[in-house]
């Protein structure tokens, strides 16, 4: 028996019955794999050390033989978004990693000790590791400085860059998998969610079902495609291509419970340094998708990166939908029958 994520769900007696929603401590075993199945694996993407090199995107495209496309998913088109260095634009059928580039211009203070209101709080924010920046960009454009936006006495505006490599979340409760009518999408022995391309008939239901907008239909192919967490490499004991290529270990691959522990440590370390914007996204197994297999450390609100702030698996509400569908169907039968009662005309 393998412990998959934290055992909190089992403590609350919720390890049974969370078929549609809520924590599932052993999602792989829950889906029918024998007790000796591998541990659930995942990604921890620490965006605080992402340098936006896109090595993950390239490695993914090369390994998985994904076609070239533009920011709208048009195959064999080369296009620039004109908005930022991000010309991938989004996750889709042909881009299973997507590095988001966010340029934020906000008022910050210069990093001189004399500036800003004196006080103990100020002294607790040592800039231990001043980043190397262009001389015309003040060095205070660090995440630590962002934690004190109130100290903007001088009114200087600075740029900060947020970069984040987005990927399929491999949700505990995966809406794409739930709604797939052919059984093409399935849960692997590693706890990941994969499309069987020889089964998919291109109905497209998974596309709007995903609360993150990950999976998409490939034009001129008709089937849907998304990150497989390199299922082929995993079965051969290799780690996914993106994680192998990442030069800063922003993308970390491993057993999910180990990654969660590491992420908690990293978050605590950043918070200790005064990086208040730091938060984990997809780590919480009580969230709307039962926790994600691929989770993130972000430095701002999720929507800044194009991520939904509070995603919920749509099938959570499916029992209510089926009840309404049943009631509606009964109403149709009853009312039409009533139309035949009595009068001959």
């Amino acid at each position: 028996m393998t412990a998959i994520s934290s055992a909190s769900a089992a403590f609350r007696g919720q390890d049974r019955g969370n078929r549609l929603f809520g924590p599932v401590p052993d999602v792989t075993g829950d889906r029918g794999y024998a007790d000796d199945h591998p541990a659930r694996v995942g990604f921890f993407t620490d965006t605080s050390v992402c340098i936006g090199c896109k090595a993950c995107e390239v490695a993914c495209k090369e390994w998985n033989l994904l076609p070239m496309d533009d920011a709208e998913g048009t195959v064999d088109a080369l296009g620039l978004t004109g908005a930022s260095y991000d010309n991938t634009g989004m996750l889709g059928a042909n881009s299973w990693r997507h590095v988001a580039f966010v340029e934020q211009s906000r008022a910050v203070d210069l990093p001189m000790p004399t500036v800003g209101p004196p006080g103990a709080a100020d002294g607790q924010r040592p800039l231990e590791d001043p980043p190397v920046v262009h001389p015309q960009v003040p060095a205070s454009a660090t995440t630590a400085e962002q934690s004190a936006p109130s100290q903007t006495a001088s009114g200087d505006r600075e740029i900060r860059w947020l970069m984040s490599s987005d990927v399929c979340k491999h949700c505990t409760h995966a809406a794409c998998l739930d709604v797939c009518p052919t059984g093409s999408l399935f849960r692997t022995e590693f706890g990941t969610v994969v499309v069987q391309e020889d089964i998919c008939n291109g109905c497209g239901y998974c596309v709007p079902a995903c609360p993150y907008g990950v999976i998409d239909q490939r034009q001129d192919d008709g089937r849907v495609f998304k990150c497989t967490l390199c299922y082929d490499r995993l079965t051969d004991g290799l780690q996914p291509a993106c994680a192998s290529a990442c030069p800063t270990e922003s993308i970390q691959f491993g057993d999910l419970d180990a990654l969660q522990a590491r992420a908690d440590q990293r978050l605590a370390a950043l918070q200790e340094k005064g990086v208040e914007g730091a938060r984990l996204y997809g780590r919480d197994e009580t969230d709307g998708v039962g926790g994600a297999g691929a989770f993130f450390l972000l430095l701002d609100e999720p929507e800044v990166y194009g991520l939904p702030p509070d995603p919920v698996v749509t099938t959570r509400d499916l029992p209510a939908m089926w009840r309404s569908v049943g009631a509606g169907a009964a109403m149709v039968l009853g009312l039409i029958a009533s139309a035949f009662v009595g009068r001959r005309r």
Partner: peptide
């Protein structure tokens, strides 16, 4: 409307109550 119309019969490969399209 299917991306692969020739595979329509895959709809009847499984019956999943979590998928309104399968039930449908």
């Amino acid at each position: 409307d299917l991306g692969r119309p020739s595979r329509f019969l895959n709809m009847l490969r499984v019956l999943k109550t979590t998928s309104p399209l399968s039930v449908g």
